[in-house]
Design a protein around this nucleic acid. Structure first.
Lengths: 134, 134
DNA sequence: GCTTGACCTGGAGTTCACTCCAGAAAGTAG
DNA sequence: CTACTTTCTGGAGTGAACTCCAGGTCAAGC
């Protein structure tokens, strides 16, 4: 598989793939006439990297994970601990975002009320200042 | 309230507060002998900004919201729409993160199994390659 | 009045994660 | 063989969100 195909299949740009290789997130692939020739296994691995990135893991940490992976099975406990820490971070982020949704709902409700009053009272200037940002 | 106090109360750095002022996220406060003197209302407003940031809203969008706010009540419908869009984005992000948790759980389980086998078989070299990244 | 700490400005520097570029080499279709 | 597309390298540039700095001003305690 050439780099363009990997890009197409993963949704990452060619530049990003080379950048990830430079950072050590992916192993340097074989070359055919100077061009990168990837194994199919690169696709799920990049999918996994994308998932880690979606959780907010910095690429430096992904690199740490990748280099543990390269070292083989002896590092599996350490990798598991990394994923467990990330799992906890994700749960915390989900909780934070759920609070954000609640706050947004509160604000949206306030705006709906203000608009209703606005319409009812014919657009007269009103004071919004008693509605705290909370 | 001086800038240091605002920083202490919000957890933002003094530099960040001045940066936000430059971007137009917060109104330029009154000055007392050249020094910024903030109204108490700045604290909940900054709390709201932090919440928007936590949802992943770029500062440019926060600035848009802030400038609508400055224009007064006539913009409340537009602000509500912004918050509704953000709400939808947050729900999508929560869903994505929940999928990430599931995937992490799957991986963590695999690692736990590998480690168990590892211990049982006395640390003999094993092949992990049949465990897909997916 | 003096010292010490907080605050001021304008601008430069940093980090992260890309993204783009020029110029050259390799692969592909007709 | 020609024309076109893809890929190559090394390095420069980008945008977001800060963060730091020098050199100066202001204020509070003793």
């Amino acid at each position: 598989m050439k780099i363009g195909e990997v890009a197409r299949r993963t949704g990452l740009s060619i530049d990003t793939l080379r950048y990830y290789e430079k950072l050590g997130l992916i192993d340097p692939p074989w070359r055919q006439g100077g061009q990168r020739a990837y194994d199919d296994a690169i696709v799920p691995w990049l999918g996994f990297i994308k998932m880690l990135k979606a959780t907010g893991m910095p690429l430096a940490d992904v690199e740490t994970y990748a280099s543990l992976r390269r070292k083989g099975d002896d590092t599996s406990a350490e990798r598991r601990r990394m994923l467990e820490r990330q799992r906890a971070a994700v749960l915390a982020k989900i909780a934070e975002l759920q609070e954000c949704v609640e706050l947004l709902d509160y604000k949206i409700m306030n705006y709906a009320e203000i608009e209703a009053r606005h319409r009812a009272e014919g657009g007269r200037k009103e004071d919004e200042s008693d509605r705290p940002d909370k």
